[in-house]
Design a protein around this nucleic acid. Sequence first.
DNA 1: TGTACATCAGTGAACGCGCGTTCACTGATGTAC
DNA 2: TGTACATCAGTGAACGCGCGTTCACTGATGTAC
Lengths: 234, 234
Amino acid sequence: MTRAKTVKRRRASRGSGDQLRAEIIAATKDLLAASANSDAVSIRAVADAVGVTPPSIYLHFADKDELISAVVVDVFAELDAAMMAAGKRADGPLDRLRAFGLAYVRFAVGHPEHYRVATMERCVDEAPGGQSDMDKILADSAFTHFMQTVTACMAAGIFADGDPLPVTLQLWSAAHGIASLMIAKPYLPWGDLEVAADAVLCAAALGRATADLLGGSPDAGQVTSWLREQGAPT
Amino acid sequence: MTRAKTVKRRRASRGSGDQLRAEIIAATKDLLAASANSDAVSIRAVADAVGVTPPSIYLHFADKDELISAVVVDVFAELDAAMMAAGKRADGPLDRLRAFGLAYVRFAVGHPEHYRVATMERCVDEAPGGQSDMDKILADSAFTHFMQTVTACMAAGIFADGDPLPVTLQLWSAAHGIASLMIAKPYLPWGDLEVAADAVLCAAALGRATADLLGGSPDAGQVTSWLREQGAPT
DNA sequence: TGTACATCAGTGAACGCGCGTTCACTGATGTAC
DNA sequence: TGTACATCAGTGAACGCGCGTTCACTGATGTAC
């Protein structure tokens, strides 16, 4: 059932080398969506899907790692776009934070293999180059937009004033936790995914806010007695 | 620098076939610790590390998948043991929950590749067999011990009474989120890993408790006005 | 307008490699007599 | 106690495969004259 070569034929062009590049990235994403990890997607399969021979790939990417990196960049851009779209109709910074988180989880669950390769595969370099990686992530639109909203929540008195970075990391952890667990263990009794995700996200934000009320990082004893004050059932 | 075959020699034995089996699992774990994923650990490398020829592996495991599954079982057992040890000296159920969570994150950060293969690799079967997988996880010691402690927290009035399962999943998500993000993005500015993990875990538990106080799943408006009542800064 | 030619996107064939798995075998172990 | 023999853990060689990457090439494109 191999596609005859004549069915899809690639034509040359002159100035527009970028078109094939985009097609290669798109094909890689498609193949990735049906694979366990990026190792399982081969240059040959990508070339085949695009209707081109394997060496052509190397005209656009130095090697396989560079191709996968380009896919990751593309996935993060798509994720950011989904979050931005969801945040548009939010009412206030806390509601926007929630919309962002829900969009984040929705994206991950909807594109599990893309999310996996973008956030869960071992990084290529652990050398000093890691620093530039960090800059890349911190400058990444999705993360930045998330952090801007955390800053807005601080300004609105929802979180205590301070450095938004640790709070952002904390909330991102919550979103990533529910997203990646739903992907990795889909057979667990999650119930409605949106409801479960919302519960985690709300609890994370509310927990941060409440911990701030209690002075930052209360221990178990403080929490227990505070809950008793609040009239929690015993 | 290949080890001469005579340096490590395997002797036969009769009744004790299980010894080699255990050595194979241990060697696989060692190799996994230095690899990107289970695909990157080969049967040949495992055999070599154990001092045996590749076909010998098949005397103990039907195929590579079965070997990896055995490793995952072993990793979960080790994780459970670490959690139990940490929970022993806890003071009350909430404190135990925190000790469990911290031990969980510590284990993940200390054995990132083991944690990754156990919780983040694509499951082998998505067929009806998935149901038995679910049972396996729910019956898994670490998860069960976690859930028992959640039940104890409900009995102590810390969480609202009800089904402990969704609450357990929610708290597990928090622990998994911070653990897996620290592993995947170690170059992010986490500061002290224990402190960052503790902040996430505390916020998750406190958030769940507070949300219960507010009736289960408050929306942004309710949270904002409740915070204002509590005298949060504006 | 018409032709020669430089450019360069894409080709076809091949490289060497390491993989999971199989097969018929060997030879130490431990039991039956 | 001594010997013949069944057992079965582990071997050695090979299978077919798909991989990433390379190399010298081809032939359409578009420009120079």
